[in-house]
Nucleic acid binder design. Structure first.
Length: 585
RNA sequence: GUGCCCGUAGCUCAAUUGGAUAGAGCACCGGCCUUCUAAGCCGGGGGUUGCGGGUUCGAUUCCUGCCGGGCACGCCA
C-alpha cells in the first residue's frame, strides 16, 4: 500500500476528472485523462488538458467543457481549488497538507522512498560494457558502464527484476591476435628475434601479460625464431591485406608449434585481461551478476542450436558456399552471412545464439547498451529475434555516443591505432569516481559528450556534483549542531511548513518517484541527475534564507524534518547514479 | 550514393514525449559572511529553437524539402 505520494495524487486527480467526464460527456468516456505538473506555479500544482482533448468530439468549446467538468468534480480532501486557464486547461491547487504528507512518507520509507511498481517485477536484463578483452577500458567504455549501471539501478527502483550482464568476446580472431601479440613479446623476452606484427596490440599491457606468462611457465612456450617465421607470407609495408594474411598465418603457426599449449596461453591471457577489467569496474562501482562467455555458446552447442532453429523455420539458405540468414524477411536491408565459405561462423551467428539464450532464460525485456557506431547492427538482431518467434520489441538498444575529453579548452586527441587513448582508469584517477560518474550521466546518452576535465576536477562551486553533495552534507551538519535523534522527526507536526519555498521543496520531493519512473520508462537515467540538481538548488536557496535551529520547538522540528527528507531523497537519487552522499565536505 | 542520429542563449546542456510566457549552469555585470559549511544565496542583461513549408485549438517536439555536423553501410568483431 506504500505506493508513492505523487502517483496517489496523480491517479486520484485523474479519477476525479474521469468521474466528472462521465457526467458531462458520456460519449467521450474512452478518453484517457492525463494529469501533468505544469511548469509554472501560477498554473497550479497539477493540471489537466482533458477539456481540450474532448472538446472537438463533443462539439463544444474547451473552456465551456472545462466549466462543466469543474461543476461536476467530486470533493477531495487534497484539493483546495480548481481554475480554468488559457485555452481550456484545468489547474488544480492542492491543500498544504497534501504536500506536507510527503515529508513523513520520506522519513518513514527511507531508502525505499522513490521505489515503485511500474516494472511489475518483470524480468529484465541489462547487458553493458561488453568491451573486447583485448585491451584496457577507455573513456568510451566508461560512459557505457556508468549509463548501464545507473539504468539497472533505476529499473530496479522502478520495480523490475534486473540482471546485469557482461558479454565476453572471448572467441574469434581479435582474441587470437591478442594472444599472438603477447606471445611475440614473450619470445622477445626469451631472446628470440621475432619482429612485432604491425597489426598486433601495441599497449604496455601486452608486455605485462607476457611477463606474467613467463613467470608462470618460464620459457616453456618459447620456440626458435626461424620455426616461427619460416615460410610466412611477406607483408610489405602499407599493404594491409598482406599484413592481415601474415597475421592469419602467424596464428596458424602458433597453434601448430604450441599445440594444446596455445589454448593454455589463451586462457591465461584472457583471465588476466578480464581480471584487469573487473578490477577497474569494481573501483568504478560497477558490478555484474554474470560474465557471459561467447566461447561457451560454441562449446555448449548453442550456436548450432540457434541456427538449426532458424533453418527449421526456413530462414536460412546457401549461396556462394556460405550460409545466409534471410533477415530481409524481417525488415533488414540485406541478408546476412552466418556461416562463412570456410566453415567458420560469423560474429553475428554467436550473437543470434546469445539473444536466443537471453530470451530462453525468461527475460521479458532485454536491453543491450551499445556504442552508437553499432546502430546499423540493430535491425539484423531484431530480425533474428523475430525469426526465432519472439517479439523484437523485447529487445531495446540504447546507444551511447562518443566522449570527447577537454583539457584547458583543448580537445584531448585520442587514436586507437596509436594507442594514445585515455583509459577509464586514468580518468578515474584524475577526476575521482563520483565526478566521473556524474559527468557521464549529466546528459542524454545518445548525445555526444564533451567531458570537461578541468571542471570535473575543480573543487569549486562550478562543479555540479559537489553542489548536490554539498546540499546533503549541509543537512548532516545542521543535524550535528542540533544533536537530537533524526529518527524522532518522522512524528513531527508538519503544519509549520507553509512558506512558498517549503511548498516548492515538498512538491519536488513528491516528484521524485515520478522522476524514477520516467527515467526507467525512457531508459534515461540522466533525468535523475537533473532532478537532483534542481532539488539541491531549491534546498540551498531555502537553507540560505532560513534558520533551522530556532527557539520555537514545533517550527524547529518541522524544518529539521523537511531537511532530513531532502537529505534522504538526495541520498537515494545519488545512489541511483552511483555517486556517494558524504556527510562532511 | 543509401540508411540512422543530431542542430535550442556566447559556451555546455534541459524542456514532463503535442501544452500555457522555451528553462538551468558556465561566462559577463551588480549585491550578500559577527548567524546551523560562502563548495552557498539574491538580482540583471542575453532566443526568429539551423532555414522554408505543412498538419491543429497549440509545434523545440509530428510530416516534408533544403543547409550544416556525426555515425553506419564486410563471408571483421
Amino acid at each position: 500500500m506504500s505506493s508513492t505520494a505523487s502517483l496517489d495524487l496523480k491517479s486520484h486527480l485523474a479519477g476525479l476528472f474521469e468521474t466528472a467526464l462521465k457526467l458531462v460527456a458520456p460519449e467521450a468516456r474512452g478518453t484517457s485523462v492525463t494529469v501533468e505538473r505544469p511548469k509554472q506555479t501560477s498554473h497550479g500544482d497539477y493540471a489537466s488538458n482533458v477539456a481540450m482533448q474532448v472538446a472537438k468530439q463533443v462539439r463544444r468549446n474547451p473552456r465551456e467543457v472545462a466549466t462543466a467538468l469543474i461543476a461536476q468534480l467530486p470533493d477531495s480532501p487534497w484539493v483546495e481549488r480548481v481554475e480554468i486557464a488559457g485555452a481550456g486547461f484545468i489547474n488544480v491547487f492542492l491543500r498544504p497538507t497534501a504536500k506536507q504528507d510527503v515529508v513523513r512518507r520520506v522519513l518513514t520509507e527511507g531508502a525505499a522512498f522513490g521505489r515503485g511498481t511500474f516494472g511489475l517485477n518483470r524480468k529484465v536484463q541489462v547487458e553493458f560494457v561488453s568491451a573486447n578483452p583485448t585491451g584496457p577500458l577507455h573513456v568510451g567504455h566508461g560512459r557505457g558502464a556508468a549509463y548501464g549501471a545507473s539504468l539497472a539501478n533505476v529499473l530496479e527502483a522502478a520495480g523490475f527484476d534486473v540482471a546485469r550482464e557482461y558479454y565476453v568476446n572471448d572467441a574469434g580472431r581479435q582474441m587470437d591476435i591478442l594472444c599472438i601479440s603477447v606471445w611475440v613479446r614473450y619470445l622477445e623476452m626469451c631472446g628470440e628475434d621475432v619482429p612485432f606484427p604491425p597489426n598486433g596490440y601495441q599497449g604496455d599491457y601486452v608486455r605485462t601479460r607476457a611477463t606474467e606468462l613467463k613467470a608462470i611457465d618460464g620459457g616453456r612456450l618459447s620456440r626458435p625464431a626461424r620455426e616461427v617465421l619460416d615460410g610466412l607470407p611477406a607483408a610489405p609495408e602499407g599493404d594491409e591485406a598482406a599484413v592481415e594474411a601474415r597475421m592469419d598465418a602467424l596464428i596458424e603457426r602458433a597453434r601448430t608449434l604450441l599445440g594444446p599449449a596455445f589454448e593454455h596461453l589463451s586462457r591465461i591471457v584472457l583471465d588476466r585481461q578480464l581480471d584487469g577489467i573487473r578490477d577497474v569496474l569494481t573501483r568504478f562501482g560497477v558490478t555484474f551478476d554474470m560474465w557471459y562467455s561467447e566461447r561457451s555458446l560454441y562449446d555448449s552447442g548453442r550456436v548450432a542450436e540457434a541456427l538449426a532453429a532458424l533453418d527449421a523455420a526456413g530462414h536460412l539458405y546457401t549461396q556462394d558456399g556460405a550460409r545466409w540468414f534471410r533477415s530481409t524477411a524481417f525488415g533488414d536491408d540485406k541478408d546476412r552471412v552466418v556461416q562463412r565459405e570456410n566453415g567458420l561462423y560469423t560474429y553475428f551467428a554467436s550473437d543470434i545464439a546469445y539473444h536466443h539464450d537471453k530470451l530462453q532464460r525468461g527475460f521479458e525485456l532485454v536491453i543491450d547498451v551499445w556504442g552508437a557506431d553499432h546502430h546499423g547492427y540493430i535491425p539484423r538482431v531484431k530480425a533474428a529475434i523475430a525469426a526465432l518467434g519472439c517479439d523484437p520489441a523485447q529487445l531495446q538498444v540504447p546507444l551511447i555516443q562518443l566522449v570527447a575529453l577537454y583539457r584547458g579548452g583543448e580537445q584531448v586527441r585520442m587514436g586507437k591505432r596509436s594507442g594514445s587513448y585515455v583509459t577509464l582508469e586514468e580518468l578515474m584517477d584524475e577526476v575521482g569516481v563520483d565526478a566521473t560518474r556524474y559527468f557521464y550521466l549529466a546528459r542524454k546518452s545518445d548525445q555526444h559528450l564533451d567531458f570537461d576535465l578541468d571542471l570535473a576536477k575543480s573543487q569549486s562551486n562550478d562543479n555540479p556534483v559537489y553542489y548536490i553533495q554539498y546540499a546533503h552534507a549541509r543537512v548532516a551538519s545542521v543535524l550535528q549542531q542540533w544533536g537530537g535523534d533524526p529518527g524522532d522527526l518522522a512524528g513531527a507536526d508538519l503544519a509549520p511548513l507553509d512558506s512558498p519555498a517549503e511548498m516548492q521543496i515538498m512538491q519536488r520531493l513528491i516528484d521524485f518517484p515520478d522522476a524514477v519512473e520516467a527515467a526507467a520508462r525512457d531508459l534515461a537515467p540522466h533525468g535523475i541527475a537533473f532532478y537532483l540538481k534542481e532539488l539541491a538548488a531549491e534546498f540551498h536557496s531555502y537553507y540560505n534564507g532560513t534558520r533551522f535551529l530556532v527557539d520555537e520547538e514545533t517550527v524547529k522540528l518541522a524544518r529539521l524534518a523537511l531537511a532530513v527528507a531532502v537529505q534522504r531523497v538526495l541520498k537515494n537519487g545519488l545512489a541511483l547514479l552511483g555517486v556517494s552522499a558524504p556527510e562532511k565536505m
